[in-house]
Write a protein that binds this DNA or RNA. Structure first.
Length: 149
DNA sequence: TAGGCCATCTGGTCCT
DNA sequence: AGGACCAGATGGCCTA
């Protein structure tokens, strides 16, 4: 896992209080517009933090390639899309296959669990069709994938 | 060093 | 008027 240090967090550098203080001298001298701008900046930071929290929660439930590098926001969205489509496809196919294929269905669900996602590399398929099916279910492939064999 | 990714600031727009 | 949302600009950090 790569731990990224925010280049400028709200309290250390680049915050609205510092940048605006440099213009007006001190907080007491902030006029109305400056105070509104500072408040807007604070709201925007809080909003983006909420957005990032949502991304973190999404990363936790989405298949993660490897353990050392977290998915970027873009990659997270792409993976979430593929993940949802894969689950949806499994449900659709399960309805077609009916009861006799319960074991097959269990296998599919096991494979799309984030913690078991690497099983794509070790799973043995009973037919080329199943192999093609599972890989087509996850069209988004992280370039940096290195799955242990 | 270049490129990717990210946080923050900022001004604009829309909504309540 | 004020808040939420968005997109562009800017600059820092990290990796190949």
């Amino acid at each position: 896992m790569v731990s990224r240090q925010p280049s400028c967090t709200g309290s250390d550098s680049g915050s609205e209080s510092e940048s605006l203080d440099s213009k007006s001298g001190s907080p007491e001298k902030h006029d109305g517009s400056t105070r509104r701008r500072m408040a807007a900046n604070a709201r925007e930071r809080k909003r983006m933090q909420g957005l990032n929290t949502a991304f973190d929660r999404l990363r936790k439930v989405v298949p993660q390639w490897g353990q050392d590098k977290q998915l970027s926001k873009y990659e997270t969205l792409q993976m979430a899309l593929s993940y949802i489509m894969a689950l949806s496809r499994i449900l659709t196919d399960a309805q077609k296959r009916k009861a006799p294929h319960r074991q097959w269905l269990d296998l599919q669900f096991d494979c799309v669990q984030p913690e078991n996602y690497q099983c794509f590399s070790t799973i043995s398929y009973s037919s080329p069709d199943e192999h093609e099916y599972m890989h087509s279910s996850f069209p988004y492939q992280y370039d940096g994938l290195q799955v242990p064999t």
